[in-house]
């Protein structure tokens, strides 16, 4: 199977430039990078993609078995890196993708030069001596929210979301589709994301790492950012004056500047 079309890979920026691989998190797709990608592409070879099951990826390649574990998403990353023969990859992972990047770098260590983690959390659920910010019941509520909002989307949006490049008129109907996912797929991604515990993997990181957090983030609160920073030896922690979980949308200039600064100075 062609990995590039399976994962809807898009490439911009100077050919031969240092590679920035942008990985979206749970919720939406590579459109999350739209405000920062043009700036990054001025000096980097920017590679974006959708995980199988998200955005315009090939839904027929999705299986619960593979994507019910973060390792399945990490395999997507490694397969993209190998298919495009990317080297010295600066991996930018948003939200759960920050930890997916840790797993991918451990699986293919010779491909990755650095990790940039935006709003990372290795464990969302509170445990003994650890505060992730959520309880198991909170995650059930999220699943409810997902289901409540698929009533209108699942049937009507599915054919549009599955990708109709030959029918551009459907573009008009794309409202909300950036974040629309097949309910079964979203449920699995949500569970996999919010029930994961990858705290033990942080110690495997051996490349220069930037932890980029927001000053006000309910999903990845500052104490989680501090935990990740402490668990990855030699990592750098940068706190953006931004609210919410998506600084690449709410504070794109500062986010892009932090990425350029870190990825441009180290390799």
């Amino acid at each position: 199977m062609d990995i590039s079309s399976r994962n809807n890979v898009t490439v911009s920026g100077p050919e031969g430039g240092p590679v920035l691989l942008l990985a979206h998190g749970f919720g939406c797709d590579q459109n999350m990078w739209r405000l920062v990608a043009p700036v990054l592409a001025e000096s980097f070879r920017v590679v974006q993609f959708d995980y199988v099951g998200s955005g315009r990826s090939d839904l027929t390649a999705w299986s619960e078995e593979r994507y019910g574990a973060l390792e399945g998403y990490a395999r997507d990353v490694v397969e993209i890196v190998e298919a495009l023969d990317l080297r010295e990859v600066r991996f930018v992972g948003h939200s759960v993708s920050a930890m997916i990047g840790v797993l991918a770098a451990a699986a293919a260590p010779d491909r990755f030069a650095s990790l940039i983690m935006i709003g990372p959390s290795p464990c969302y659920i509170d445990g003994p001596g650890y505060r992730g910010g959520f309880s198991a019941e909170d995650i059930d509520e999220l699943l409810e929210s997902l289901e409540a909002n698929y009533l209108g989307w699942s049937a009507a949006m599915a054919p549009v979301i599955m990708g109709n490049p030959d029918r551009p008129e459907l573009g008009e109907e794309l409202t909300n589709s950036f974040c629309a996912t097949d309910p079964a797929v979203a449920r699995v991604f949500a569970r996999t994301t919010f029930l994961s515990d990858t705290r033990g993997d942080l110690g495997t990181v051996s490349v220069p790492t930037l932890v980029l957090e927001c000053s006000q983030d309910a999903i990845a609160p500052r104490e989680v950012g501090a935990y990740v920073h402490a668990a990855i030896p030699g990592s750098r922690l940068v706190t953006l004056e931004a609210t919410g979980h998506c600084p690449q949308l709410s504070a794109p200039e500062a986010t892009a500047a932090a990425i350029v600064d870190f990825a441009g100075n180290r390799s």
């Binding site: 009533l151 909300n176 983030d217 949308l249």
Partner: peptide, 27 residues
């Protein structure tokens, strides 16, 4: 609700940012 907050931050806010509007979301 806490779950609704995650949904807000992962779906609602990004969509509102990208589209300038969003309608009929169940929360």
């Amino acid at each position: 609700t806490a779950g609704g907050r995650i949904y807000h931050d992962t779906h609602f806010a990004p969509l509102l940012n990208m589209q300038g509007s969003i309608s009929g979301i169940a929360l």
